[in-house]
Each structure stands twice: as structure tokens, then as C-alpha cells.
Nucleic acid binder design. Structure first.
Lengths: 234, 234
DNA sequence: ACTTATTGTTGATAATTGTCAATAATTTTA
DNA sequence: TAAAATTATTGACAATTATCAACAATAAGT
């Protein structure tokens, strides 16, 4: 019979190496409560963690790896909402509404994820006002982020949107001028709300203009100022 | 010297005629706390209640009237995010982040609005877990709403977006098949992320096809099923 | 290592949507 | 109430972006 280990990386939340600042507000008892029933799962790139519309029974914490969140839309169209990097939670707005998922989550790099029972998480929210406030701040920041993307995708045109995507990946996700992207061209197109072909064409222009170097998954941003300018012009 | 009345409609939150379900979770003491420093202001159509970027010192409650929220974007472009109808709060995601506004709010009908001090509101959140949970549910619903709009505006084309706007106004805001719109054509264009001219053209088609009657501000939805179909096709 | 399937790239073309300019209607101001 | 200003509507046209089809490159399976 298969024996599930609670966690390969840490035995409990109190001395967790990956712990998010959010959980630092909890006292030992509360951490113990969160730790109750908690388990860790490893995902390979491409594996879906949960699907939009399905039941949401746990609050998730990304310990390591990289995860994409996307909104499933018309037909087979898809909007890549944002990338999660550790340590970050991604419960989704359904947890306090109807316990359903409002976006899909898929690992794009080998990822370790802790599953915390919703009841335990909610109990922590009720018991600890600092934790509650920090959680509200957290979801508020997500809203603010979404507002920004909303405006960018509805108002900027192709070059501005592609520049945004590249700068986002460079500044926020990989935190380097050169990085190996773990997203397909389709993912990048979904991130900018463009067709794959249009995305590729803009990339081609950027390469021709010497703003970036990009072959395959490898990207180097050679003229970040110029890209930023394009992002601002829209 | 001008004497500000606390409120023209009610003396305190305990016996408020406009009270939102959210505040029903508070006990008399907590309501008293919320009522502390609370004041009511009347806005005329077109008057701005707060502007994106400015400091957010109060949590707002719409008692009566109608308010539009919009995201200011590129240059003078504007995205009408949603319409607030009473009784509904509209604090915005900044309250638990940096006390700044992330969208602008403007009255589109004569509106009565209560201003509740942020500190008092936050204290209520900390004291009353039911209130906190309900508040989180509230902002989560806003996120879910925004996700839907995000997908619709980035993936549907003009007729689908215009149909969405009309159905939203009919079903959610005015709750009638016929209504007098209190938004300009520019507002409606901002709501669908279209140019004013394109919006008007789609409206014209809908009129020619007998889906709606619309002259000036008066709208009647004569074939809601057909509109719904257009909305679904995108 | 070879075949097959998937993903990425390019060009040609068509569809969608915006811009500009002119005019009509409405509202505001004097 | 008339003039001025704003808002709404229409048409012609231009810009933006998607689609389709072909082919190249890479990855996956045998």
C-alpha cells in the first residue's frame, strides 16, 4: 500500500523553510491547526493543479516551482492571468464564496505545493485578526494587479502588451535580464491576449530592433529602457 | 456658519433604512462604533466622489442613487468597471493596502453616500469574525465579477460586448426590460471597451434587427433571448 | 535513430475595430 | 429664447489584429 508522506521538505508548518510572510503572523497553536491535515504534492510541468469550475477544498501554498493561473473563456480561448512564484498562496476568490475555482492552475516548472484544509484556514482567519487583515491585503493586491492587467490588455496595442509581458517576466518572475522561459508561445499569447502568430511577429520586430535576444526559450532583454518606453506608449 | 447634519435620512446606523446585509452582522456596540464620525453626503449626477490615485480615508456606502466606477487608463481612455447600486459598499482594494483609490467613482444619479472612518471599519473587521468573513466574501465576489468582465472584454467582439452591457443594465442594474439609462454614449463605450462610434453602430444594428428599441436615454429590450444568444456567441 | 506529433515561424489575406470629418441633435449658458 | 457648447450619429477610410495555410523546427514515441 502506498504510504503518503506528510511532506518531503518539512514535517510541520512551524519550522517550514518555505513559509510565507502571511503565516508568520500565526502563533504556534494556530500554525499547528493549519498543519492539521496539511499535505504536500509535487507537480510536473504541464500538470494541472486544479481546474476552473471544480470544487475548491483546500487553500494552496506554492513552496517551490512556478505556476500559471488562467481564466478559461470563449471556446478554447484562455487568458493567462498571472504567474505564481514561491512563497505565494493561490486560493482563489471562490474560497469565501462557493468553494469553487474561478481560474485554472497549472505547474509550468516542477512544483511543490502544500494543501491546507479550507476549514482550518478559515478558522485561522476568524481567530487571528492580524492574519485576517494580512489576508485581505493579499487579495486586495491581487485585485489591484488584475485592474492593471485589465486596463493594459483592453487599451494597449500589440507592442505595448508584448513589452509588458517581457518586463513582467524579467522584473517580477525571473528577476533577471536573461532567463529561460518556461511558457509556450501560446501561453505568452494568452498572457497578452493576442493570437500566437501576432505575438511572434512583435517578438520578431523587437529582435530586429535589437531590444531583445530570443531564441527558443532563452530570452535576454538588451534594451530594457526601450521596452519600458514601448510599454508606456502602449 | 454652516452646520453639517450627521445624516438627513437616519440618525444612526442602528436604525438605518438603507442598511446593507453586511452591517446586519454587527451588534449594537459595533454599529455604534461604525456610526462614530460617520457622515452622509449627497452627490449630483456627474459629480466625482473620489478620484483614482487620491487618498482613501473612508469606507463608503451607497444608500440611494447610482454610481459608476472606472479605471483610468492610457491618456484619456477610461474603463467603466461596474455600476454600484444601493445598498452597496465601494471601498476599493486600497483600504487594506496603502489607503489610496485604485478607481474613480462618479455619481450618475442623485446619490446619498455614507462615509465611514476607515479606522472604525477596520476595527469592526478585527472584532467581528462574521463581519470579516462577509467582507471577504464581498470583495471576492467583486474579483469574480472582474474576472468575468476581463474575459468578456478581451475575448468577445463588438456585438457580444454590447449585448453584455445591455443585459447587465437590464438584469442587474435597472431590473426591468425597459429603463432610462443614466449613462452617456461615451460611458457605454467605456463599459464595452469600444470607441463611442463603434458602440453606436452596434446599437443601430440591434435596433434595425428589432432586438431593442432605443432613442436617446430610453431603452427597451424587446428580444432578450436573441441578445443573450449574441452575448454567448461572443 | 527514425517516424510521428507537436510547437514555432512566416507570408498572404481577410475581418475587426478605430479614426477623422461632417452633420444632427441635445443641453447649457447668456 | 437665441447662441454656444456639448453630445450623438453617420459615412468614408485607415489601422490594427486575426485567420488560414504552408513549412520549419523541436520534442515525443517506438
Amino acid at each position: 500500500m502506498i504510504e503518503f508522506k506528510k511532506s518531503a521538505n518539512c514535517e510541520n508548518c512551524q519550522n517550514c523553510n518555505f513559509r510565507s510572510p502571511l503565516f508568520s503572523l500565526l502563533n504556534p497553536d494556530e500554525l499547528q491547526m493549519i498543519n492539521q491535515d496539511r499535505f504536500e504534492v509535487f507537480f510536473k510541468p504541464g500538470e494541472m493543479i486544479f481546474k476552473q469550475g471544480s470544487a475548491s477544498s483546500h487553500f494552496l501554498m506554492l513552496n517551490s516551482g512556478l505556476v500559471k493561473l488562467n481564466l478559461e473563456g470563449q471556446k478554447d480561448r484562455n487568458l493567462l492571468l498571472r504567474i505564481i512564484k514561491p512563497p505565494q498562496m493561490f486560493g482563489g476568490p471562490g474560497i469565501f464564496v462557493d468553494q469553487r475555482h474561478y481560474y485554472s492552475a497549472t505547474a509550468i516548472e516542477p512544483s511543490s505545493i502544500c494543501f491546507i484544509r479550507l476549514e482550518n484556514f478559515r478558522r485561522a482567519i476568524r481567530l487571528n485578526p492580524d492574519f485576517a487583515e494580512k489576508f485581505i491585503e493579499n487579495i486586495s493586491l491581487n485585485s489591484i494587479f488584475t485592474f492593471g492587467r485589465f486596463v493594459d490588455l483592453t487599451q494597449k496595442q500589440m507592442p505595448g502588451r508584448v513589452a509588458d509581458a517581457l518586463l513582467y517576466l524579467s522584473n517580477e518572475i525571473y528577476q533577471s535580464k536573461q532567463f529561460k522561459i518556461s511558457l509556450s508561445r501560446q501561453d505568452l499569447a494568452d498572457m497578452t491576449s493576442l493570437s500566437k502568430e501576432s505575438f511572434i511577429r512583435i517578438i520578431k520586430e523587437f529582435k530586429e530592433d535589437g531590444l531583445i535576444v530570443m531564441n527558443g526559450d532563452f530570452v535576454e532583454i538588451t534594451k530594457p529602457e526601450a521596452l519600458k518606453k514601448i510599454s508606456q506608449i502602449g
